[in-house]
């Protein structure tokens, strides 16, 4: 196994998300009462405080909300510096943090806020696929 970055310890209510990643699906929590998607997964809808939550398969599409280029980190990511992190506005609503792919960390000015991105998954261990987002052609 070659993946050597931090692997999240998984909560008790997020398994539909992690199961989805194994099948290449971006599963998102949605409120059955107000129909809004939220991220990260909650025990309660943060918008209307309903507890009637369901999981839907997301499109895996989004846009760059903002980004930064990491030159100094202390995790296993240190040897990858510089690398680009970004917050992604999901097509379905709300926002996700990621390491952005398909961009040049040496040319941060060329990265465009609003650029379309698509999710992909990398296997980290037997149980875990990590989502990453990649800039796609418009």
């Amino acid at each position: 196994m070659s993946y050597d970055k931090p692997i999240p310890s998984k909560g008790t209510h997020t398994s539909p998300f992690w199961e989805g990643t194994k099948a290449g699906k971006l599963m998102l929590p949605r409120c059955e009462d107000c129909n809004r998607v939220h991220w990260y997964p909650r025990h309660i809808c943060p918008f209307c405080h309903s507890m009637n939550l369901e999981w839907i398969e997301g499109s895996g599409e989004g846009t760059i909300h903002t980004y930064a280029v990491q030159h100094l980190v202390f995790s296993k990511w240190a040897k990858e510096t510089p690398y680009v992190t970004a917050y992604i506005d999901l097509k379905e609503g709300d926002r996700m943090l990621t390491v952005l792919r398909g961009v040049d960390p040496e040319k941060p000015e060329e990265i465009r806020i609003g650029a379309p991105v698509r999710v992909e998954f990398e296997q980290a261990d037997e149980d875990t696929f990590i989502p990453f987002w990649r800039v796609v052609e418009e």
């Binding site: 970055k5 931090p6 692997i7 999240p8 310890s9 998984k10 909560g11 209510h13 997020t14 991220w39 990260y40 997964p41 909650r42 909300h65 903002t66 980004y67 930064a68 280029v69 990491q70 100094l72 980190v73 202390f74 995790s75 296993k76 990511w77 240190a78 990858e80 992190t85 970004a86 917050y87 996700m96 943090l97 990621t98 390491v99 806020i113 980290a124 990590i130």
Partner: peptide
Amino acid sequence: GDASPSHEMSTAYGLAAAPNHYAHAMVR
């Protein structure tokens, strides 16, 4: 801590120190 879903969904990307985070606000 580890049992926080927000932590669970961001820990994979290696950000820990304050500047790692704040820079995103500056760019926006």
